[in-house]
């Protein structure tokens, strides 16, 4: 099969890759580029484990064709921590024990970033609806919601 050449930016870094036309961005991220922080739970857009940001917008990487990513800026879980340490959302997920097995966590953290970028002070209902596309089977969501609330506070009032 003929491969196509695509140029994008991933976590602020210019990246070029070859892909088959039917391959998803998720496949390319994980298998071609070895960025396995983005997880796969269904490949049908129903679990959110593959959540990434495309030009700041929350998308399921399994529903985006790799070829479509050309010319766009992709942010994955690997792009959140900085030299200064963990992103406050990551820190709050840890402090609130908001992960058990952790497979949903990268997707939930990326989705939370999308939420807080847009709604810095969301109420509980807003959080629950924003994260409704991210399945977590372990936690019952309680501690995730609390982590998000606390992350919003700490982003608004950095220590």
């Amino acid at each position: 099969m003929d491969k196509i050449q695509i140029g994008t930016s991933i976590n602020g870094e210019a990246v070029e890759f070859l892909c088959e036309p039917q391959q998803s961005l998720l496949e390319v991220l994980r298998d071609t580029l070895g960025r396995t922080g983005t997880k796969e739970g269904c490949s049908t857009g129903d679990c959110g484990a593959c959540s990434v940001l495309m030009d700041g917008r929350l998308v399921c990487a399994c529903l985006v064709l790799a070829a479509e990513a050309g010319g766009h800026e992709i942010t994955t879980i690997e792009g959140l921590a900085t030299d200064a340490g963990l992103h406050p959302i990551q820190q709050k997920f840890l402090e609130h024990a908001a992960l058990q097995c952790g497979i949903c966590t990268p997707g939930l953290i990326v989705a939370t970033k999308a939420l807080l970028d847009r709604h810095p002070d969301p109420d509980e209902t807003t959080i629950r609806y924003w994260l409704a596309g991210n399945l977590c089977r372990c936690t019952g969501y309680d501690k995730i919601i609390r982590a998000v609330q606390d992350a919003a506070r700490s982003l608004a009032h950095p220590a």
Partner: peptide, 23 residues
């Protein structure tokens, strides 16, 4: 007490390797 888990950082940064993550 409820301290942060020892394997936590790898799980919030995408470093932790799950079943399909090894190549």
């Amino acid at each position: 007490t409820s301290p942060v888990r020892p394997d936590g950082v790898d799980k919030v940064t995408g470093r932790a390797q799950y079943g399909a993550d090894l190549n």
